[in-house]
Amino acid sequence: MSARNINFSFGAKTVLDNVQIEVPNGKFVALLGQNGAGKTTLFSIITGLYAAHGGEISIGGYDLRKDIQAALGSIGVVFQRPTLDRDLTVKQNLRYFCNLHGISRSDAYKRIETALESYGLAELHKRKVTQLSGGQQRRVELARATLHNPRFLLLDEPTVGLDHSNRLEFVSNVKALCKTLNVGVLWATHLMDEVEDADYVYILHHGKILFEGKSDDLLETHGKNSIAELYSHLTGKTTDVQHPS
């Protein structure tokens, strides 16, 4: 996945200013930024919900503008806000997604079984979404996002609302995916500890990529001990982006 020269504004307000991002296969790429930095807007553009006011996006070799359906077919998304249908059961949610992606019935059956198994949801499949904990819901969303074997996963603050242990478990789930399935992951967050051992880090601030690089390199170059320190050093802020207590 690559995004080049992305610009976007709401009226006079510039939200994204010449943003460039690249997510290679099998890499865990973090997009760090405080609330309002433009992360969700960027994700909306990559998923075709908004059209960028300039720039190019290519996903799995498909140009988003010219071949949006093929491009969308190769992304899996976990949105910041829950998108599970709360009135349906876990399995019904997954089946609905398979239908949307044109996965044949028998194929869907197999994939759903496998996904439920590997995300530890097997016993929960008959439960309604409302009966699941926040962590379980997120796991369902992650399982769903991978049902169509995407080449690229997009996660927008996926751990919001999760407690510490659930959060760490979720992060490690995704990192494992990244390696085993060789999918590229773009992970947007404002939480430092999720970023520490990312393959690559982008820092988005006021719609601009303020900094990018391998996390180790970044720290080395600036002589800081953690991404948090680096972030405050770069933006002069400490409030929004932080280690969770």
Partner: peptide, 9 residues
């Protein structure tokens, strides 16, 4: 949102 990011027109 989920619906609109499905790979169909």
């Amino acid at each position: 949102r989920l619906l609109l990011v499905s790979p169909l027109p």
